[in-house]
Design a protein around this nucleic acid. Structure first.
Lengths: 121, 121
DNA sequence: ATAGCATTTAGAGTCTAGTCTAAGTCAATA
DNA sequence: TATTGACTTAGACTAGACTCTAAATGCTAT
């Protein structure tokens, strides 16, 4: 699969795909005889995972750590699990924070709708 | 209330408070005779709102728009409501995305815990 | 009154995560 | 054969949101 196809499939840019490869999140992706990337199924699986985690706000730095641990083999299983568990906690915390903000936002909108707005922001 | 006290209260830095003021999200904050900021209750209310919305990822640009509309008075009520409703939608969407990522993360962690991990990332 | 710490300003610097540019290569098409 | 369009690289640039620095001034305690 070409970079363009992959970019379209995952709704991201070619640049981002090359960038992820440069920082070591994916690949190195195989290139054909004229130096053009040809993404494997495995590459696609990784990209999907990375994309999903990125959309949740997990940093490239953390993802890179995970990928590097994976590359080191089975001996890092526990470490990887712990890393994921930490990210799970952070993510749950973030979702909680955002849900609280959403509630306040909804309350404020209610004030607008019912014209009960006080004099503050 | 001094900048230091406010910063501590809301767990942010003095720099961030001055920055928010510079870009027009709050204030201008009243200064005492020697030029030192003295935050009012109203300032605090605003800071709390801004902080809450920022923690949900609402951009400074959008918050600035809201603040500016507020400053223009009652005639902008509908516009403000619409702005908030748009942000509500975006926020709900973001929470949904993050919840999906969280589910995948949990699933992956389950694989680690039960030692059913396949050969991929 | 002088040391030491907090505050002020303007403006420069930092970090993250891309995004863009320039210069070059390659395959297909007019 | 010449042009077009997609791809390549290294590296510069950008946006957003702070964060830090320097130089000046002010308050407080010794």
């Amino acid at each position: 699969m070409t970079i363009k196809e992959v970019a379209e499939k995952f709704n991201m840019t070619n640049d981002t795909l090359r960038y992820y490869e440069k920082v070591g999140l994916i690949g190195p992706v195989k290139k054909n005889s004229s130096g053009i990337r040809d993404y494997s199924d495995n590459d696609l699986r990784r990209i999907e995972f990375i994309k999903c985690m990125r959309s949740a706000g997990i940093s490239i730095e953390v993802l890179k750590m995970y990928v590097d641990l994976y590359a080191k083999g089975d001996s890092t299983k526990l470490e990887r699990q712990q890393l994921l568990e930490e990210e799970q906690e952070k993510l749950e915390e973030k979702i909680k924070t955002m849900t609280e903000a959403l509630d306040k936002l909804k309350y404020k909108i209610e004030l607008y709708k019912t014209d009960k707005l006080d004099k503050y922001l």
